[in-house]
Nucleic acid binder design. Structure first.
Lengths: 218, 218
DNA sequence: AGGGATATCACCCGTTGGAGTGAGAAAAAA
DNA sequence: TTTTTTCTCACTCCAACGGGTGATATCCCT
């Protein structure tokens, strides 16, 4: 019985490369479809019912995480493995929460990929050690966060976060709060650490999505 | 007849300074109240019905622009003058759209401020030449934008904007779109110019507020 | 009295961001 | 067929950002 795989990635070349790679192990896997966007991935997942979906994050028309959430909600039996390119992207936590079965880097070796695919169909999680380590740290952090109730951000940090979300730079925030830029950076550093984010832009969208800030409509 | 002024600024010292300044011209102006937040400003505007509100932008609990919108909606007879500190902040366009009567810098001279206040009560706009110039350029730009239908952003720019809103860095965007970092910067520069924004964080919140991106809930 | 969390700030350092300028190629519109 | 728009990229330059480390003072809690 071969593993039926759906590939979702907007890079045609990457898809083709993967397919030819898969074809070298036709005893093990079979590529049953390709999607160029998140939306297409959802559609094909429904039509093809693959065993595994290899999903990129950045895609036009519905990114991979959103698509993963939808697919996992409707077809929990389909294993979704995120295949991303950047080593340090802050989507790991978001991804595991959407119910994906794995989170791998494109720098992965072909043999490792096959091994992961086998494991995934047996219900194991697909993840490199480095990712797992990051995840554990993150989870530990989150637990601290949650048991503290709400966001665990201090008042001061919330103030800084709101200003970040308003598009203010660190010097502007410093002036607004009458503190030094160093202190602003210190607060922001703690915010990013607590929320497991990579940069101020993610912090801003985080704040908006959670209504920590007044989304001045329009 | 003196001009009744409400001061809304979270910096107590600044408020007090302004008040003592105002008291030197009791023949002209009278400070009838102080607010430390946007919410308080709305409340006091209703209670006191001042002639003019001097409003800061960055404030905890409801920023000045939001408060301005509410107040202008309910009491259009009250003139609102934004008093901000940073020379180059991208809220100018947002501010004028909320119906404020003026947009001044805190670096303003006291005599100029009094002059502006007199003008405002006569229905004139309060604005420095520099601000007016920036505004005109912006309006000209906006008109180009609007007659082009929708956002005037090109496809490529929209793609970049979505990635920016997802919290991706320029190198990450470059890799995702298979173009150079220089090109990403070029696109982003054009985006910021077209939308009259200052930085990528503002671009991200812009995208979120307008639903250009899938706000992955949560 | 001691421990932990908070808020403040300094210094270093490498990377990123954004402004400015210029320019070429291809596609679309005039 | 010109002209304009779009997309691409290079190069410089400086400010801003973010990581890391460490320090001090305050306050709260036990």
């Amino acid at each position: 019985m071969t593993i039926r795989v759906l590939i979702a990635d907007d890079h045609k070349l990457f898809r083709q490369g993967l397919i030819s790679l898969m074809n070298t192990r036709q005893d093990l896997v079979e590529v049953v479809g390709e999607a160029e966007s998140g939306e297409e991935a959802i559609k094909l997942a429904e039509q093809l019912k693959p065993d595994v979906i290899l999903m990129d994050i950045y895609m036009p028309q519905g990114d991979g995480l959103q698509a993963s959430k939808v697919i996992h909600g409707r077809f929990p039996e389909i294993a979704i493995v995120i295949l991303t390119s950047s080593e340090k992207d802050g989507h790991l936590y978001e991804a595991v929460q959407t119910g994906v079965s794995g989170y791998l880097l494109k720098s992965l070796d072909a043999e490792e990929l096959f091994g992961m695919l086998e494991g995934v169909t047996r219900g194991e999680a697909a993840m490199t050690r480095a990712m797992a380590t990051r995840l554990l740290k993150g989870v530990a952090n989150r637990m601290v966060v949650e048991e503290k109730g709400e966001s665990s951000l201090t008042e001061r940090e919330l103030l800084v976060l709101r200003l970040v979300a308003s598009g203010a730079s660190n010097p502007e925030i410093a002036e607004s709060l009458s503190i030094s830029v160093n202190t602003v950076k210190s607060h922001l550093k703690n915010i990013l650490e607590k929320l497991q984010l990579d940069n101020r832009t993610q912090a801003a969208t985080y704040a908006l999505k959670r209504g920590l800030v007044s989304p001045r409509d329009k």
